[in-house]
Structures are given as C-alpha cells and as structure tokens.
Design a protein around this nucleic acid. Structure first.
Lengths: 134, 134
DNA sequence: CCAACTGTACTAAACATATAGTACAATAGG
DNA sequence: CCTATTGTACTATATGTTTAGTACAGTTGG
C-alpha cells in the first residue's frame, strides 16, 4: 500500500557525521518532537535504501543501534516499531519553539548564513556553560 | 615564552565528528567570531597535541585542510598563521547574539537538555527552509 | 501453498580516520 | 655555530564506516 511514512530521512553529505549516526539522530529527534510514538512503524530498511540511496547494511546498523538503546524493536517479517519514547517537548515548550523560529528568521534577515548561525549557537552554549560554573 | 594561545581547542568524543574536522570547524568559528585575525598565530602542532592528547598527524591534517581553504599558512620553523578572515559577526549582530543567549537560558530553565535543544534547533531550521520555498 | 513483503546474517572489499614512530628542513635566539 | 622550536614527510598499523553481494527466516494477504 502507498502508505505515507511518518518519517523521512535527510542526509547531509557534508556534515562529516557518519550516515548511520545521522539516521539514529533523526529518529531520536522525531521521538523528542512527538512525530513518532510507541507502536509506530519506522520506514522499512528497503524503503530507506530507496529514499536516500545508501546500503541496506548501513540502515540496519542504525536500526540495530536504536534497538540497543531500547527505543525500537525489529520484528522479522513485520517491520521495525517504536518501543518507548524520549522526554519530549510538550505544549509548554511551544512558546520557546516560536521564539527560536523567530530568532532564526531575524538572523537570516540580517544576512547570516548557516555557518555564521552555527558559530553564534556555539558561542551561546559556551556562555551558558560559563554561567553554570558560578 | 609562556604566551597564552588565542585559541583553545575542545574535543567532543561523543559527537561522532572526526577530530580533524572538529579542529577545522573551531578555527573557522574563531575567524567568524573575530577571535582570530589575519596575522595571528595558531597554537603549534605540538601545543595542540599536549592540550587535547591526540596525534600530531591529526593536527597537521586539520591545519593542512585549513591551508587548502586558503585560511591559514604554515611556515616551517615559525608556526601557522592566519591568512584571511571569514565574513564575520560585527557589532550589528550583538543584539542577535544576546537574544540567542537569553533564549538558551530560558530553554535550560525550562529543563531542556542538550539533545532536546538540538531537536528544537533542527525543527526551527526546517521551518525556515519551508518558508524560503514560498 | 504462494508470493511479496519484512528483518537479519554473513563474507569480502574499499575507503576514511587516527595512531605510533621516525626523520628532515626551515627559522629564531643565543 | 648550536640548540630549540617550528612545520612537514613518510611508513606502518589499527579501527571505524560504507559498500557489494548473497542468503535466510519470519509474517502477511491472497
């Protein structure tokens, strides 16, 4: 059946991050953001292969890693399903999400590119760390 | 001489990013943030080795990559020096930096951990992309 | 039962990354 | 000139990542 997948993977070939790691991260993010819930089915190994043009072994490695973390469970013949969720973002955090999105829009409007924004985020995190040590 | 280095590298062993890539990124960030300027000297290969306990070859690879990008120049017997800068953050962007730092503080106060914050940033970026395509 | 789907297992090879160890050449300071 | 510093070059090795290819076993729907 032409069932729409809950999750679409996107690879960044320039990020330097291993592919299997990008897949793991994106599933964890989907759990955080409430896109995936316990019982939901992940895209099949072969679907992912078609979608992002990588080797089945790499997808399997990512799913195996997620299984090892207790987040999903693979069932031969059926698919891979979410087992538990992660401390997620509730409606209480909607305001935060909106503020951040607004900030990003301002940054783009100011002509900052992705790397410049990354630099700002990194600096902000450092400031936060310094704050915590006092 | 006990000269303080302009730049201190910090490695994240769990990030999945190759070490040499982390070094490259941090130098580029320092250029963006105005921490490094043309003519400035990078920490010597052997200094970095002592600081973060990695192999000299790895440091050299990072510096070679930066040289290939035209950002620095290695001079045998003297050191490695910044050649040009990158489109940086001027005082016009101070307001943006402050807003972001404030946002991060709010997020921490709301009990969000690093991964949850990463998820929020990722979602915000996706929203921004969707916006651009209209 | 059969066909089509699922996850899983395995070997082999290629490539990327990081290490260890040694050595050499250029520069600066005494 | 001598010495300590710098970047650079090279081989070899280990580990991690990805690919190719083949095969098998469980599940579902007709």
């Amino acid at each position: 059946m032409g069932n729409e997948p809950l999750l679409r993977f996107r690879l960044d070939r320039h990020s330097g991050l291993p592919v299997y790691r990008q897949l793991v991260d994106q599933v964890r993010q989907a759990l955080r953001l409430g896109i995936l819930h316990p019982g939901d089915q992940l895209p099949s190994v072969r679907d992912v292969v078609e979608q992002v043009a990588i080797n089945p072994n790499t997808v399997h490695r990512a799913y195996r890693e997620l299984e090892h973390q207790g987040l999903v469970e693979g069932q031969a013949g059926r698919g891979t399903f979410v087992r538990r969720s992660l401390p997620g973002l509730t409606k209480q955090h909607d305001a935060l999400q909106r503020r951040l999105t607004a900030w990003l829009a301002s940054a783009h409007a100011a002509g900052l590119d992705d790397e410049a924004i990354e630099a700002m985020v990194a600096r902000a995190k450092e400031s936060a760390e310094r704050e915590e040590r006092s």
